[in-house]
Simulated scan of single mutants.
Amino acid sequence: MRLVDAIGTEHVPVVQEEARIVCLVPSITELLCDLGLAARLVGRTGFCIHPAEAVASIPKVGGTKDVNIEKIRRLAPTHLVVNIDENNKPDVDALAAFIPHVVVTHPLGPRDNLALYRLLGGVFGAEEQAEILCEAFEREYAALEAISKGAPGTMLYCIWKDPWMTVSHDTYIANMMALAGWRAWTPTSDARYPRFEWSDRLVSEIDRVLLSTEPYRFTEEHADALERQIGKPVDLVDGEMMSWYGSRAIRGLRYLREMMVLMEAGKMGGSIAYRDPHLGQD
């Protein structure tokens, strides 16, 4: 198969032992480790925290949007893995001046993970493990599709406060919500992550609020206070499970399915956050 990334660049497979990878995308750092490529990673961001044991010895090169270019230069990578949403183009352009291969990613929906697994598995000689991940993804996707979705609802998914921010309809998070039959409320805006202000009209247009644990660290206290303020159900949800693509998306599908079951049974509400004890363990 042709190994084409999100901006149409075609990549050729590399001898795995010759790859020196810097990854600036937390969820993809985890994916590369799950593809068996941890030993090939020579740089990561400070937000690349999974799997903890594997990444502990990999040098940090800054954040997703404030990378240390000179430190990366000294690491002499052969490949850079980035994401259109998460990384700044000027940084990527500067790095591309001395890194031979830049792999650009941009998953917009859960099923885009299949191509992501195969792209990175193909480039770095991990095709067999990529297919194992694809099979696991398809099983969880089928299990999610098989359950009743109940009545559709309009959800306001909050990723930040001061200012309040949500997600647009073309984001990975909104497409995850769509798998559950939930419509993502969003203001009229061209922004992918638009700001909004609370109003009586907004509250009348939504059925429920989902407060994400990342990037803003919403807590149960935030959920309790907001529910008292607006008089609608407010739930705390695991942001990694809803927004991380890569290998964590497999567990994310299971998380979403179990959350749907709890919501349908009326067991979610207020500040009750669903966290599957089997998920998110490194």
Results as ranks from 00 to 15, higher is better:
residue 264 E to V: 15
residue 28 I to S: 00
residue 28 I to M: 00
residue 137 F to W: 11
residue 157 Y to H: 09
residue 42 V to R: 06
residue 155 M to A: 10
residue 131 E to L: 13
residue 243 S to E: 01
residue 252 G to W: 08
residue 64 T to I: 03
residue 69 I to E: 06
residue 224 D to V: 13
residue 277 P to K: 15
residue 104 V to R: 04
residue 96 A to E: 11
residue 129 Q to K: 13
residue 97 A to V: 12
residue 65 K to C: 13
residue 185 W to Y: 02
residue 187 P to G: 06
residue 106 H to Q: 10
residue 153 G to M: 03
residue 216 Y to F: 05
residue 3 L to S: 08
residue 271 S to W: 04
residue 184 A to D: 07
residue 13 P to I: 11
residue 44 R to M: 01
residue 172 Y to S: 04
residue 208 R to P: 03
residue 44 R to H: 10
residue 105 T to I: 05
residue 58 I to W: 07
residue 189 S to W: 09
residue 72 I to F: 01
residue 227 E to P: 12
residue 56 A to Q: 06
residue 105 T to N: 04
residue 52 A to D: 01
residue 125 G to A: 04
residue 196 F to E: 11
residue 183 R to M: 12
residue 205 E to L: 15
residue 118 R to G: 06
residue 243 S to I: 05
residue 88 N to L: 15
residue 144 L to M: 12
residue 144 L to E: 00
residue 197 E to F: 14
residue 221 E to Y: 09
residue 232 K to F: 05
residue 247 S to L: 05
residue 190 D to Q: 08
residue 48 C to G: 07
residue 184 A to E: 00
residue 176 M to V: 15
residue 76 A to T: 12
residue 6 A to H: 04
residue 234 V to E: 08
residue 126 A to F: 03
residue 193 Y to A: 12
residue 225 A to S: 11
residue 77 P to Q: 09
residue 266 G to P: 15
residue 207 D to W: 02
residue 82 V to Y: 05
residue 94 A to I: 03
residue 206 I to Y: 03
residue 249 A to N: 11
residue 143 A to W: 15
residue 145 E to S: 15
residue 17 E to V: 14
residue 278 H to P: 09
residue 75 L to A: 12
residue 130 A to I: 09
residue 252 G to C: 10
residue 257 R to H: 15
residue 58 I to D: 00
residue 166 T to G: 02
residue 275 R to V: 14
residue 66 D to V: 06
residue 240 E to H: 10
residue 58 I to N: 05
residue 205 E to R: 10
residue 191 A to L: 11
residue 146 A to W: 08
residue 181 G to T: 01
residue 123 V to W: 05
residue 53 E to V: 04
residue 232 K to H: 09
residue 216 Y to P: 09
residue 259 M to P: 01
residue 98 F to E: 06
residue 271 S to N: 13
residue 85 D to M: 00
residue 274 Y to N: 08
residue 9 T to P: 11
residue 199 S to R: 10
residue 83 N to I: 06
residue 235 D to Q: 07
residue 34 D to S: 04
residue 6 A to E: 11
residue 206 I to P: 03
residue 71 K to N: 10
residue 173 I to Y: 03
residue 157 Y to L: 04
residue 4 V to G: 05
residue 60 K to S: 14
residue 231 G to M: 11
residue 171 T to W: 03
residue 64 T to P: 12
residue 46 G to Y: 02
residue 229 Q to W: 14
residue 194 P to Q: 13
residue 20 R to C: 09
residue 231 G to Y: 07
residue 248 R to G: 02
